[in-house]
Amino acid sequence: MSIKTILNSSIVKKVWMALTGLFLCTFLVGHLAGNMQLVLKTGEEGRRAFNEYAYFMAHNPFIKVLSYVTYFSIIFHAFQGFYLTYQNKKARPQGYAYSKPAANSSLPSRYMAILGTLVLVFIVTHMANFWWKAKIKEDIPLHAYTVSIPGPMGQMQKQEFYYTHNLQLIPKNDEITVKNKTDLYMKSVNIKVAEGYVDLHTVVMDFFSPKQNEQAMFYVLLYVFSMCALAFHLWHGFASGFQSLGLNHRRYTPLIHSAGKLFAVIVPGMFALITILIYLK
């Protein structure tokens, strides 16, 4: 059997689905850990924590590699999924006039392609909402830090600083200019003096805040709905990945199934809850 035939076999296709799917599960955990910063800490501390996390995600070389793996996984998982679904539809050109599939299989397991499509649509929306802004669009402010310091006359006066990733505070004034979104330059000598945090925290908080965004309600509902789709997708997908990899054991498989269901409820549930909490704030 040639390598080509092996790679094109139904089993290998399934294995790729499992590997990319399970990898994306780990990605979800990482993503959720970051998002938790939005609600676990409040005020300036919360803003700093989240922005630090965002900076780390954008700059750590290891994470960078992982992010490409993630992009690849999403695209591959989606397109392979579509292709498999196409093949599966082709395998039964004429359907049954009367079928009762509920008697033999769970609902999510039968609608993985549709659930996956919903998740994919969500990912695109989500990336347009945030990833696009952070990566491509220029108009995200740097994380600004306002302190009150005693002025020469003794009265307290507020002054703004840029907050940088190496924990410096750079005064926000005419001398400093921002290039490449986060690089702080001394105008006069055109020298990079520091690197600041993009204030993604504010972007996110504003996005889901009814005070800042007229469409916040719509987005919260969209996100909650999408997380439901993700939950159903994972309800079947998590354990299914193990089965595709051949990991089935009379003792451990029931545990994997339980773990998968817990994962499917908790992870998307937390994502959804965070948006609601921000909305209610």
Partner: peptide
């Protein structure tokens, strides 16, 4: 034939109750 998506319908409808652990073993 189509691809397996692990719905488990086969196992439920199999008149001889053959388990999908056999599919995992084949994988």
């Amino acid at each position: 034939f189509g691809n397996c998506t692990n719905t488990g319908a086969c196992e439920v409808e199999c008149p001889k109750g053959i388990s999908i652990e056999n599919i995992a073993r084949m994988n």
